[in-house]
Design a protein around this nucleic acid. Structure first.
Lengths: 113, 113
DNA sequence: TTGACATATTCCCATATCGGAATGTATTGT
DNA sequence: ACAATACATTCCGATATGGGAATATGTCAA
């Protein structure tokens, strides 16, 4: 076995920085491929390939209009990622509190509340 | 060029499901490698290698105690991921509202509020 | 039909992966 | 010093990658 395919899930798909840029760009409104190419300064085949990956895991939706293909971010598909990361929120909050407490203790613990 | 290294950032590191399991397991409290091996039923070298990746991107902290190495999740390092995904929250909320509106319209739009 | 335009796919290559097996290293107890 | 324990690393093989170049596909316009 080798590394998991980027097409396997959203986690793998967004691991690629270029794909995150594309998702950011397509979040506001749908755009044709050519505009993505111009805006993000990437090669057209590269953009098409990234879009293919994103579409396969449901991170973008596609719509044809004449010769153009309009893509837009499917924000819903990013939720699982947000939720997984969110399960750690209470832990980093705790860490911050501990750091703060240690800093206060070190500085002489003037106040105690 | 090939795919970005898993050691490059947190996004790449958490793309691996096994590494997410490890992070989940080490979030509550620090654990020695052997316990991770038993709890998650993975080979020891595999666990060590994943921990190496996680440590390199700062997702876990390590502490030696005798022959054992205790690891714990550094939740702080997961925040950037949470925040990136969070920038899409308003979009998926909009999408849900639109879906709801469409459903109501279709069902006859009995109520209008 | 023919050509132009917009996008998608294929082929190639250097590289990075993950798992398994074997081996290396650090620390402790005797 | 030696063996045992706990991890870490290295080597291997199969496979997936992303970029570049070339080519294929699909759609419209004349």
């Amino acid at each position: 076995m080798a590394r998991a395919a980027t097409t396997s899930d959203a986690f793998n798909a967004v691991a690629e920085p270029r794909r995150r840029e594309i998702l950011n760009y397509l979040a506001l409104q749908e755009r044709p491929v050519g505009e993505i190419v111009d805006a993000l300064e990437m090669e057209q085949p590269s953009v098409s390939k990234h879009l293919r990956v994103l579409k396969d895991v449901g991170l973008v939706h596609a719509r044809r209009d004449g010769r153009q293909m309009f893509y837009r971010t499917n924000a819903e598909a990013i939720r699982p990622l947000h939720e997984w990361a969110g399960t750690f929120e209470r832990y980093w909050r705790q860490q911050l509190i501990r750091i703060k407490e240690r800093a206060e203790a070190k500085s002489g613990a003037v106040k105690k509340d």
